[in-house]
Nucleic acid binder design. Structure first.
Length: 837
RNA sequence: GCGAGAGUGGCGGAACUGGCAGACGCACCGGACUUAGGAUCCGGCGCCAAUGCGGCAUGGGGGUUCAACUCCCCCCUCUCGCACCA
């Protein structure tokens, strides 16, 4: 027999060739079995697979292979999130074209994935930069435009000076660009927006339906991001007559504190500022303040240590109920882009307002009392922000906060001075990017007709591949006449094509649906395929996408549903979400600058893909970070060698059996019974851990235990025909259970055992409870809850018998000496606790 | 500050519904086989005490219970996310 030593290079090359020759992991075309759609977040084709990818895809592959063996028709696809800025940067750096760089990277990374033996249906591979893909996105865009869910708006936008493009709010992390960490600037631009806020309520409310399948952390982050606040809008009439407005609006979550308002504060950017200060003696002071605050760095301005400061405008507003004059201030802690950009100052019941009032000597008025005692406005040293009952609030006195909120809002509505209202933190999604390497936005600009949608039959609007990116990194599209020059779809006059491209997050918002029918040339997907495959049963990826990608995908799913592309009952794209932890090295995230990168390819070359996969899954539970260690991968490799050796050394006695096929009749002695018992218990544990709980580390540990038991059994069994059946069954079980994790070695040994089928096509073994029962059980003996010994007792022994045996035990006797036994707790088959005092 | 999660041997981690804490692996120590071993196999391995008995241990403190890593209350530490959102 060849290859007595475990040589992963040889084994893996052999099996990858076999799988590759026939697209060995194609999905069953007949859609009659129950389906299971497992998806890993597709990679950006940067050129290299890193260890984080390996962990992500290894988890997905185990789930895919395991579910397939358990009888599901499994969809397990892979593709490339191929548009994006790195391609442009690389093109400039290497004097190539993004399209060449991208496709070369895809080829390289696909080869790396194939070396890892993942069971993807490669016939469904997609790359979002292909016209066959993005043309459907352009169709969606036009339909969204029709529905009024896309619109153009000029406003202050996040601008990354390094990427030369705008960014969505979600893409600004602590004031920095999500990609390149440059400081984000503000720039007034007219851009295309997707109306994600129209789905704010639904996106928020439906999170509760994901509670059983998504990590609480991700749900919390999404809730936080959407940021719904319920309260009321209040209109304060302006004292002076101003040309632009007669009232100023504020939003509050605490209408019950309306009578505690002692001032109004506006953001420096508030549009009414100039008209409010017109004619005011100190108008210049106010203008200087506005200028200073507006020029502050965005990060500094949002810093939590920033001192609250403000300036009085000289103008007053009127309280809607009392008619009291309230001074109008500007301050640096009011955000222009939330609510109406103005807040009512209630110092007694809001800490910021309190700090502000104390600093500038503004009055403090208590209007909500915690049970019984009223805080003293003069001596209180912080705001009382809790609930209570209303005081000093006219006819509302005595109402509890909850009722007060509603009563005040109702009164505002009655008197036309406001209404109950809801605010979201979520902003509409700016999808315009001033970049080249993205999907063109299918709109043209006509002098007479304005912005006109391209006709659907003219799609795709192709991204020109002959455009060259200049050294300055700016998009070449505006300077590419073949792209820009076109005719107006409406009037036929010469027109200019939109040169902004779409945010690449648009592509990743619907790719999971394209996989269901990836080669469809007539439609983005067929209804039958969607009905069968969606939603994704298990989605796996990094937590860094908790807001951006997952929120956009949830939004897109609803939009496509409401436009009739998706089934009407489909709202959530991903039923279950697993966010895997990071792979660290020496306690830190792997990075070029730290120089602590472990290259998967090197590890595969040294230990084989099976060992790399095994270690990634064994080192820690999937959600947790784990530290890559040289010793750890050695250990994984050693275990596979141990399995290999067990097979090779016992080869002559191993029969071509399948898992769990030895029977009760094959059991000759206790050694054989023990091995068979271990085998079936392992099948039970691995099935639960791998298929239900996704605890691969404990599943692997269980298989290791079975292998250890087999090493003992081969010396204790007499290895007659019956024993061989027991032993061979256990061997088949080891290989079958391990095959989703380390498929190459398992296929090889399966074949060497004498099977002509693939282990990939084996059905998951079924454990037999009767094989796991024991005649004699070990029972723990406790005295007052402390372990004092163990006892071998017949399995059927009753409580009385166990109690008698326990009390007769020498160790128990010793520890109860001089004490009175007052109670004996017996847990059948497990433990006896003698309570004595 | 708000939200989520974590805290168990030298290390990664087990213990799923309260029932023998430390499975499995790494590291380490000892032995076997060897010209050799960084291969392989066997054994040991929480801490204190040690001949045995035993005592102490799951971040700290309380509580419930016959029994607590697990449930309840208080506190500490760490990680991640959000953060002047009115």
């Amino acid at each position: 027999m060849t290859h007595l030593r475990y040589d992963p290079q040889w084994v893996e090359k052999k099996w990858q060739a076999i799988w590759g020759a026939v697209n060995g992991f194609a999905v069953d075309a007949v859609l009659d079995k129950p389906k299971y759609y497992v998806l890993e977040m597709f990679p950006y084709p940067s050129g290299n697979i890193h260890m984080g990818h390996v962990r992500n895809y290894s988890i997905g592959d185990v789930v895919a292979r395991c579910k397939r063996m358990q009888g599901f028709n499994v969809l397990h696809p892979m593709g490339w999130d191929a548009f994006g800025l790195p391609a442009e940067n690389a093109a400039i750096k290497h004097r190539t074209h993004p399209v060449q760089w991208t496709y070369a990277n895809i080829d390289a990374m696909r080869a790396q994935l194939k070396r890892l033996g993942y069971s993807y249906d490669w016939a469904r591979e997609i790359a979002t930069c292909r016209p066959e893909y993005y043309r459907w996105e352009q169709v969606f865009f036009l339909r969204l435009l029709q529905k009024g869910l896309v619109y153009r708006k000029k406003s202050s936008q996040n601008w990354c000076p390094s990427c030369n493009t705008v960014l969505a709010n979600e893409q600004v992390i602590e004031g920095l660009c999500w990609r390149c960490d440059s400081r984000v600037e503000q720039k007034d631009l007219e851009q295309w927006f997707l109306k994600i806020t129209a789905y704010g309520d639904e996106l928020l409310n439906d999170l509760s339906r994901l509670e059983s399948g998504w990590p609480a952390r991700v749900l919390a982050m999404q809730r936080n991001w959407i940021g719904k606040s319920v309260g009321a809008t209040v209109r304060f009439g302006l004292v002076k007559t101003h040309a632009e407005a007669s009232a100023i609006e504020v939003f509050t979550t605490r209408p019950d504190t309306l009578f505690g308002v002692t001032f109004i504060t506006l953001a420096p950017e508030h549009p009414l500022v100039e008209s409010l200060i017109a004619g005011h003696a100190k108008a210049d002071v106010v203008r200087a303040f506005v200028k200073r605050i507006r020029n502050m760095d965005r990060i500094d301005r949002q810093s939590d240590i920033l001192e609250k400061e403000g300036v009085f405008t000289g103008a007053y507003a009127l309280h809607p109920f009392t008619g009291e004059r309230l001074p109008l201030w500007l301050s640096n802690f009011v955000l222009a882009d939330y609510g109406s950009g103005a807040v009512m100052g209630v110092p007694a019941h809001d800490q910021r307002d309190f700090d502000f009032a104390r600093k500038y000597g503004l009055p403090v008025r208590v209007v909500v009392c915690p049970r019984g005692e009223a805080p003293d406005a003069d001596t209180m040293d912080s705001a009382y922000t809790g609930d209570g009952h209303m005081v000093n609030s006219g006819s509302f006195d005595g109402l509890r906060s909850e009722d007060g909120k509603k009563a005040v809002a109702d009164a505002l509505t009655r008197e036309g001075k406001g209404a109950a209202d809801t605010q979201f933190r979520l902003r509409d999604w700016n999808i315009s990017r001033q970049r080249y390497w993205g999907a063109p936005i299918p709109v043209v600009y006509c002098e007479t007709c304005g912005h006109v949608p391209e006709k659907e039959e003219n799609l795709p609007v192709l991204l020109p591949l002959d455009a060259l990116i200049g050294a300055d990194g700016r998009s070449p599209l505006p300077d590419t006449p073949s792209f820009v020059d076109c005719v107006c779809p409406k009037c036929g006059a010469p027109a200019r094509r939109e040169t902004d491209t779409m945010d690449t997050f648009v592509e990743s918002s619907w790719y999971f649906a394209r996989y269901t029918d990836a080669r469809n040339a007539n439609a983005p997907f067929s209804r039958d395929a969607l009905n069968y495959w969606l939603p994704v049963d298990q989605y796996i990826g990094g937590v860094e996408h908790a807001i951006l990608h997952l929120l956009y995908s949830r939004f897109f799913t609803r939009v496509l549903r409401d436009m009739g592309f998706f089934p009407g009952d489909l709202s959530e794209p991903f039923t279950n979400l697993l966010t895997q932890g990071m792979v660290l090295k020496d306690g830190f995230k792997m990075s070029k600058s730290k120089g602590n990168i472990v290259d998967p390819t090197e590890m595969i070359t040294q230990y084989g893909a099976d060992a790399v996969r095994l270690f990634c899954l064994f080192a820690a539970p999937p959600e947790r970070d784990f530290d890559w260690s040289a010793a750890g991968i050695e250990g994984a490799f050693r275990f596979l060698g141990r399995v290999w050796r067990l097979f090779v050394e016992e080869h002559a006695r191993i029969l071509p059996l399948t898992a769990c096929c030895a029977t009760e009749g094959d059991v000759r002695d206790e050694q054989a019974a023990a091995l068979r018992r271990k085998e079936h218990l392992t099948v039970k544990k691995v099935g639960d851990d791998m298929g239900e709980r996704f605890q691969f580390n404990t599943a692997i540990a269980a298989v290791m235990e079975l292998v250890n038991a087999m090493y003992i059994a081969r010396d204790t069994l007499t290895m007659g025909e019956a024993d061989r059946r027991i032993f061979s069954s256990a061997m088949a079980t080891v290989l079958t259970l391990l095959s989703p994790i380390t498929p190459h070695i398992c296929e090889e040994l399966w074949e060497r055992i004498g099977h002509s089928t693939r282990i990939f096509d084996q059905t998951w073994p079924v454990w037999d409870p009767s094989a796991t029962t024991r005649q004699v059980l070990t029972v723990a003996l406790q005295v007052n809850g402390k372990l004092r010994g163990t006892l071998e007792a017949p399995a059927g022994a009753g409580k009385d018998v166990l109690e008698q045996l326990a009390l007769a035990d020498a160790s128990v006797k010793r520890h109860t000496e001089g004490l009175t036994v007052c109670r004996v707790v017996v847990v059948a088959g497990k433990l006896v606790n003698v309570v004595a005092g």
